[in-house]
Design a protein around this nucleic acid. Structure first.
Lengths: 158, 158
DNA sequence: CATGAACATTTCAAGCTTGAAATAAAAAAT
DNA sequence: ATTTTTTATTTCAAGCTTGAAATGTTCATG
């Protein structure tokens, strides 16, 4: 409330922005989920975990994965359990720390992820195909400061 | 693949855009979830359903709600079940169509939603508070065409 | 009317997600 | 050496979400 009438005139605009951000994001996300399911027999959470692992040649600890993906520890436990059962990932003990595990992709996991990642990349290109370089750049330029603003808030809230 | 080297030079940029869109959206969404839970003892899905109902004085059918929120029918069944159990919403039969129900907010539901909605609005204002009119407008102008592009794709895919 | 197609909703199993409590191990402090 | 505290992970219950199958109802057409 910043004026005499009791309304911040930007409040409604912020709300509108949030709704549109959410809508565009979930339209894309839902489409990716559907395709990942139908065409790869996989899911977005599994893909995200595998993507994180693929970028960490030496493997990642459970806690590193959950921090990177900003999800709970218990969540990662379940997803890695599944990947392990399917032979796509493996937990290897950390010498000198019996609490921790390093999670790595198996060869089979690396192969599968490589497939899924190409498909994923192609889908994004298809879904966002009508955006030209200027559109993309314009949005990224707006999103970057928004993200660092949000991350700063999160850090402060701890 | 649109050039001799086998790479569309925009592919990587589109991927970057998607990751940033997703990240900003989920940072905000997670924060709203946490607050809705802690400060209102509620959840985002419940809030979304109640928000839809609050805008429909005559009530909405199950199918209308699920179409509006772009989630499955079965999902709405479960959420409305809960709202009904808690006395916040009610299913009323549609005269002349025994298959359908009109879902409405009870008085108690309207009161609760009104509370939650004010809190929600204030949180958005707080979370996005550092964005000025120009930032907001600039983003909305980019998001609007993106959304209609995505919606057109969805329609075509049916 | 009869009956097959279309429609509104529910049920269900499987998977994701969270926050909190439990385990277990390592590190720090006394 | 023995607490105490911190750290790494798992377990668990509760809730969300989906897609597919099931139910029951209405509509259209012969």
């Amino acid at each position: 409330m910043r004026d005499a009438s009791g309304h911040d005139p930007l409040t409604q605009e912020r709300l509108r922005l949030w709704l549109k951000l959410m809508k565009s994001s979930s339209l894309i996300e839902d489409e990716l989920r559907r395709r990942l399911r139908r065409e790869c027999g996989s899911t977005l959470p599994r893909f995200d975990v595998m993507a994180a692992l693929a970028q960490a040649p030496g493997g990642m600890r459970m806690g590193e994965i959950s921090k990177r993906l900003r999800v709970s520890n218990g969540n990662i436990t379940g997803i890695v359990d599944k990947l392990e059962t399917e032979g796509l990932a493996a937990r290897v003990p950390v010498p000198g720390d019996r609490r921790a595990n390093l999670v790595t992709l198996t060869d089979e996991g690396r192969t599968a992820f490589s497939d899924h990642a190409s498909a994923h990349e192609a889908w994004i290109s298809e879904i966002l195909g009508q955006l030209n370089a200027d559109d993309i750049d314009g949005m990224i330029r707006r999103l970057d400061p928004l993200i660092s603003m949000l991350e700063t808030q999160n850090k402060t809230a701890d």
